[in-house]
Each structure stands twice: as structure tokens, then as C-alpha cells.
Amino acid sequence: MSAVTGTGTSQTGERIKDLSEVPSFPAIYAAALDPRSALDPRRARRAPQADPTLPSIAYRVRKVRIDAERARDFDHLMGGPATDLVHPGVLHVLAFPVSLALLARRDVPFALLGLVHLRNQILQHRPVRVGELVDVECRVRDLQPHRKGRTFEAVSTILGQDGEIIATDVSTYLITGEGAESGSASAADGSASGSTSSGGPEHSARRAFEAPRPTGRWKLPADTGRRYAAVSGDVNPIHLSALSAKAFGFPRAIAHGMYTASRAFTESGVDLSRPLRWDVSFDAPVTLPGTVLVAYDDDRGSGDPQGSGDDRGSGGVRCVGWRAGSGDKGPRRCFEVAVTTLG
């Protein structure tokens, strides 16, 4: 884990901890797997806290360079051209280890491994270029009861060198089991609409999923998780192989949620030079190897019969991805992605 270069306190009373560099994933996961660690998955069961709270601290890394080769590899993995304007998924993977380092703190009242990524929203105010220097700030907030446990948000802010906010990345995670509300299903479903999800894809996993007509098919080979790990650095063992996934209770490896979301973003073909919002909700995991059907719905004005294209670019593109049903099992929605161009 990276060295701390200093801490400070902001005007709001929140502490800020400056890391000298973006921490490495393996170090965080190794810490999480250490049985002596406070991060041990069993800790939650051992010592349930009646009224858990999140620490009021921000982790910050300054002057992180957006690496051109990493951005290129990310673009290529998503099937897109290597553009000088950075895929917002690159910002997510840039900030993710900083968030994880924060989550690995002893005063975070739950285990790091076993978190379920429910939703993600990135709001990007201006394009980011490869080679650019950014500051990354990560916080956790909004611990809420949920039907299956609790949810909270990991919020990463990407800032330019002049202090302007370039992008905000809000990841909503589920802590399963802990503090689950029984007998209040209606409140539980409501809890899925946290304060940041307004306008995001509707979260309606409980309702039977009716698959639309697919517009594409992703055949995801067994090494999909390893390939995404190579560009994102996220070497969470549940994504890497069936064997390592089994150790964590998954029968097979599952694709990184942000891989499917990032690929859908690339395929949506939105203009990266404009401000945008990228909403993702995850339902059933995508097991590897596996086939996902996708359907895109593009309302950016391409239906304009004159082809003047004046209104193209406004509006957005939605993508839903699902696993086909088999036998008496119906199709299962895996993710829903909406990319909206703003202004």
C-alpha cells in the first residue's frame, strides 16, 4: 500500500489523507485476505455493530497522470479506437484502488471482500485527455438499510489541476447479510434509489425481466476477467478464474461489472467531447465463459428522416444486457447502461 504523505482537515471538518500514489490492488486484496486483518470477511459475523457509521475521511492522490498506454489498452479491450479523449471507465479504474484503500480501513464497519456492486454513475463535466494530470479524491457516504443488508456509496471525484471538478464517480455497493431488514420489502426496494440514482436506469430486478429483441451478442471467453484485470489492475480473485472464484463461493468466474458497463459505453458511440452522464445498474452476474445478449436503444435523433442531424448528440443511448433463458428458466438481466449527453 502506498505511503501516506500527510493528512489535513477540510473546512467541513472532514479529514483528508494524502497518499503519495495510487495504491496497488494486490496489496489491498492481500490485506483484505490476511486473517489477522480487521478486514477479514468473518469479522462482520464476529462482531456485528448495532449502529455502524462510515468514517468521515477522504483519501486523496494528487497529480496522477492518465497513462496513454493504459487508456489505449482499455479502449482496445472495449472494442473501440484508441482516442485521445479518455473513456470514463479509465477514470473509474484510476480511482477504484483509492476507494478500496479507504474501504480497507479498520474503522470501516464491514468486510471489503464480498461487497456487491449494485449501481454506478459517472458524471463527466468535460473530456479528459490522455497524459493529463488529475487529482483523485475518494469518500464513502450514505450507509442505508437494504432488503439484503446495507448499501453505501463510494464517491470518487476527479479534479483538474486548477481545482475544477472534471468528473464524479458514484459506486453503490451492497453489504450482504449485515443489518438486513426483514419484513420491509417495500422499503428495501425503495432503498435501491439512493440519493444519486435519480435519472439512472430503473432498478427493478424484482420484477420479471422481459427480454427485448437483442441487437448484439457478446461471446465472453474464459479469460475476460483476466484481460480486464490486466488493464484495470482489479485482480479481485472472483473475476480471474473458476478456481479462485470458487474460493469465494462463486461456482465460476464472473465478469467485472465495469467491464460490461465500459464495453456498453464504448458501443453506445457517444461523443466523448461533450459532458455526459453514464448510469449503470447491475443485476445477475455475468459468468465466464458466457454469452450475453444486448439490446441498444438510441434516441439521439438518428431517426430524423431529413438526416440533417441537428439534434443528434442530444438524448442518450441505453443498453440492456442479459443471459438468455433455458428450459423453464427465464432470461436474467445482468446490467443496464444509459449514456446521456448533457448540453
Binding site: 498506454e69 489505449r72 479502449d75 482496445h76 479506437p81 484508441a82 482516442t83 485521445d84 461523443d271 467531447s273 439521439r300 435523433g301 438526416g307 440533417s308 442531424g309 441537428d310 439534434d311 443528434r312 448528440g313
Partner: peptide, 26 residues
């Protein structure tokens, strides 16, 4: 190096689109 023909051509076209405001143009 490590950049494909499609990357390079997309970059040149992207720049042309931006220069002449051809976004959404058929």
C-alpha cells in the same frame, strides 16, 4: 506503436468532425 490503422484514421476523422462541427452530420 501499438496503435492500429483504425485508431489513427478515427483520430484524423474525429479531428475533422470537430474542426468543421460535423457532429451528427450525414
Amino acid at each position: 506503436a501499438g496503435i492500429s490503422n483504425q485508431d489513427l484514421l478515427t483520430a484524423a476523422l474525429d479531428g475533422l468532425v470537430a474542426r468543421f462541427s460535423l457532429q451528427g452530420e450525414k
